[in-house]
Design a protein around this nucleic acid. Structure first.
Lengths: 194, 194
DNA sequence: TATTTATCTTGACACTGACTAGATTACTCG
DNA sequence: CGAGTAATCTAGTCAGTGTCAAGATAAATA
């Protein structure tokens, strides 16, 4: 840290962390490779060596994000509340890892065909789909429709929350607000299924 | 059009239209005032005179978008399908006016405190809220929760559709896909209420 | 017609992402 | 241990960007 300045040691991680900080404060559009380099105390072209590209950096952010989201959802799936907990966790992730979330669903910002990213993406959406199965039989709705409805609902709620378009008289904790709204979709959910 | 080059005549509209074209193809991040000026056959600083700012241009786009969305939803609210039609129309708007939609819910891109914009915003969300009232009584859910659930669902579905995160085996027409998914939320909707 | 106003141009500045060539350090393998 | 290779970072450059200031031109007004 205080010895040679040439080899940073952990520049890749440092750049990603700095990027997350910038995105949290000002959105993905405010990310500048040169600024991140400055924050890490390296030359302006150093980040490009690790990510190739500005889009490459955001690809790394998105991949990390899908991995994190997968972990969060997996953990929630084992809770007594069942699928409702997954939905609430989805919103919780969006708010707590806002920077990741804001990049993940903006494919024009990164290299959407990156293999690592595709794998992380597929792995997390699998959790969404599998969890919805038990709730689909009643009412005659297809499993896929139920999963899509649930995903759409929590994704939309999270997006609207982050963009500040929701009314101000909601619960302070977005998880509580999300739980109330998600119950409209699955009113018969109290922990008795799954 | 072929006479004097100095006064364009309708530059403001020309710039907005060009911006919408660019956004449709490459997203809001790809918008460059200088490029828009080039497309309109005008000097590089001309757009700034009409919008003050790049954010000012996007403010105009967002305001126009909220106005359009309001019209679309208002029209749908009068249809026999009732609130379901409103939800489907919301998704239809997002797909047909993709450029507007992608700017509208990204407040960091524009001047979110612009009075005109705030008015258009409030006016359209009012339609969303009023339409939900008839569907809230049964099941004991609050009116607000029902409205938020519906809005979240269609907004999330539209966002996921636009970002290409939905499975490939859905109906080609996003309206049909949206209708199927929205029915999960209001299964007892066939045109008999409202 | 004279003057005021809106519109547009020109030129400049600091900033950005990307590319190149080169310097420095770490790693590997004899 | 030491030479050679690879990884990492620097320095310089280029075209392109948003924004600002000052001036030119045309339209509207009175």
């Amino acid at each position: 840290m205080e010895t040679s300045n040439y080899h940073h040691g952990d520049l890749r991680r440092a750049i990603i962390d700095a990027a997350l900080e910038v995105i949290s404060e000002s959105g993905p559009a405010a990310v500048s490779l040169r600024d991140l380099a400055r924050r890490a105390g390296v030359s302006h072209a150093a980040p490009a060596h690790h990510f190739g590209d500005k889009a490459g950096l955001l690809t790394a952010v998105a991949t990390q994000g899908f991995g994190l989201l997968g972990d969060v959802l997996q953990r929630a799936a084992g809770q007594p509340e069942g699928y409702l907990a997954v939905g609430v966790a989805y919103v919780g992730f969006a708010v707590e890892h806002r920077a990741h979330f804001e990049v993940m669903f903006r494919p024009e910002l990164y290299h959407a065909d990156d293999p690592e990213l595709l794998e992380a993406q597929a792995s997390t959406s699998r959790i969404l789909y599998e969890g919805a199965a038990p709730y689909a039989q009643d009412g005659g709705t297809q499993t896929q429709d139920a999963a899509l409805a649930a995903w759409s609902l929590v994704h939309g709620f999270a997006s609207l929350w982050l963009s500040g378009n929701l009314p101000a008289d909601l619960p302070d904790d977005p998880r509580d607000a999300a739980r109330r709204v998600a119950r409209v979709l699955f009113p018969h959910t109290a922990g008795d299924i799954a």
